[in-house]
């Protein structure tokens, strides 16, 4: 078990390394020069060649690509993410400021989707063929087909603009004003959680229905156990095995979704920071953001693989 985890962590490190190389290269392959955007912004067209070169030196852009990469990687080990070209401040500072917002929204969406998705799925399977199953399955099918940003826009139009119940956009820390913060995050969290809820509901339902037909469930009935015990002890753990894989994938989905949702709802999280950074060709922010997402995904996959062992004793790690 321990050697398996160590092996998986080493593989994760390699994956993250490859991701950093690719992102580093691809963002630089895009046409354009980050300095021109920076200069347009500061409206200093009349810089001399020498001054321009000084700026390049300031952001380390005069070096060769491998040298730039090694500079960046070396900095990472000392906790230095480099300096943003566009904002002209430390990337580490920006990330520290923006990441908690995304994590807060993402964690809420993750927990809500897990709780609701699993409960809906179990209820549908147990009440198969009844009106509640039909209704929830229909809603789940609608849920997985609707793009989250589109739902976001519709929600803003209906709940904020038309009805005026919720603020249109923005984000406030729950520590400064909890009530205002909660009202602001209802719509973005709903959008982030919608697809995960829908897909988890569908998967849990079909997985439960499959397990309910197994021979060992009939054995459990033949022992004279009551339905509640059969569901909680004999069915759910078996049904969770395929569901856990998807729960792990939801981490990646929610992080990816935050890029869109934070833009729609004007929330200053890491997702919005990254979209803007791509537009501004702010290399180091894109690199830092991608690195963080890659680490999250690798960690969630590792958690999924380890939790298999807890769910299914037939899985061995050696």
């Amino acid at each position: 078990m321990t050697s398996y985890i160590i092996r998986r962590i080493l593989m994760g490190v390699i994956i993250i390394f490859l991701v950093t190389v690719m992102v580093f290269l691809f963002i630089r392959l895009l046409p354009g020069d980050p300095l021109t955007i920076y200069l347009n912004k500061t409206d200093m067209q009349q810089l001399t060649e020498e001054q321009l070169f000084e700026l390049r030196v300031k952001f380390g852009l005069e070096k060769t690509l491998p040298a730039q990469y090694i500079d960046w990687l070396g900095g990472l080990f000392t906790g230095d993410f480099g300096r943003s070209i566009y904002y002209d401040i430390d990337v580490g500072l920006l990330v520290r400021e923006r990441l908690p917002v995304t994590l807060y929204l993402g964690a809420l969406a993750f927990i809500i989707s897990g709780v609701l998705g699993l409960s809906f799925g179990v209820i549908c399977a147990l009440r198969r063929g009844t009106w509640i199953d039909t209704l929830v399955t229909l809603l789940a099918n609608i849920g997985i087909t609707m793009p989250s940003f589109w739902v976001g826009i519709i929600l803003i139009y209906l709940l904020a603009v038309k009805a005026g119940w919720l603020p249109v956009s923005g984000f406030t820390s729950p520590f400064t004003d909890f009530w205002k913060s909660t009202r602001q995050i209802i719509m973005p969290v709903t959008c982030l959680a919608l697809f995960p809820i829908a897909s988890l509901t569908r998967l849990t339902r079909s997985s439960m229905l499959e397990v309910i037909q197994q021979d060992y469930i009939r054995t459990a009935w033949s022992k004279g156990l009551r339905e509640r015990l059969i569901i909680s002890r004999h069915t759910i753990k078996n049904a969770l095995i395929p569901v856990v894989t998807v729960i792990g994938l939801q981490v990646a989905f929610i992080f990816g979704g935050s890029v869109l949702i934070e833009t729609v709802f004007n929330i200053n999280g890491i997702g919005r920071l990254m979209t803007q950074a791509v537009q501004n060709q702010d290399y180091l922010i894109v690199q830092a953001g991608t690195l963080i997402i890659a680490i999250m995904v690798v960690l969630s996959n590792l958690t999924v693989d380890i939790s298999y062992g807890w769910l299914d004793p037939r899985i061995r790690y050696d």
């Binding site: 021979d215 060992y216 769910l311 037939r314």
Partner: peptide, 16 residues
Amino acid sequence: IAMIFQEPMTSLNPVL
């Protein structure tokens, strides 16, 4: 009234 089933490989719950 107790029962024993045909398939011993699938009649026991694999995760308990």
